[in-house]
């Protein structure tokens, strides 16, 4: 095997490793909210692929533990006020 194809494989393996880590992080995480930062703009609910009304849960101070939540991170990534974060779930500790 040539050196260049070996490097290609290594890169591919690294990518898979990254992706695996990302998936593991998502699968074992919960969405945590800090309501005082929230201005109820609704970007979170709008970007949720499962139509979870994240905004309402934050407003009412409820945990974002909807059974449909995939912890895909869309709401976390799009919140313009840093309200939401992915935190490790206590049940996996």
């Amino acid at each position: 095997m040539g050196e260049s194809s070996y490097r290609g494989l290594l890169l591919l393996a690294q990518l898979f490793e990254q992706e695996n880590r990302r998936r593991q992080a998502l699968a074992t995480a919960i969405i945590h909210a800090e309501p005082i930062r929230c201005v109820q703009c609704g970007i979170c609910s709008y970007s949720c692929p499962m139509d979870v009304d994240v905004r309402r849960l934050v407003r009412e101070g409820l945990p974002i533990a909807h059974s449909y939540c995939l912890t895909c991170g869309q709401c976390v990534g799009r919140c313009p006020r840093g309200v939401l974060s992915l935190e490790p779930s206590p049940i996996f500790e």
């Binding site: 703009c41 970007i43 709008y46 313009p80």
Partner: peptide
């Protein structure tokens, strides 16, 4: 505050 994101077409 959400009006800003309506202007930018985020929502």
């Amino acid at each position: 505050p959400g009006l800003a994101y309506y202007l930018t077409d985020d929502i």
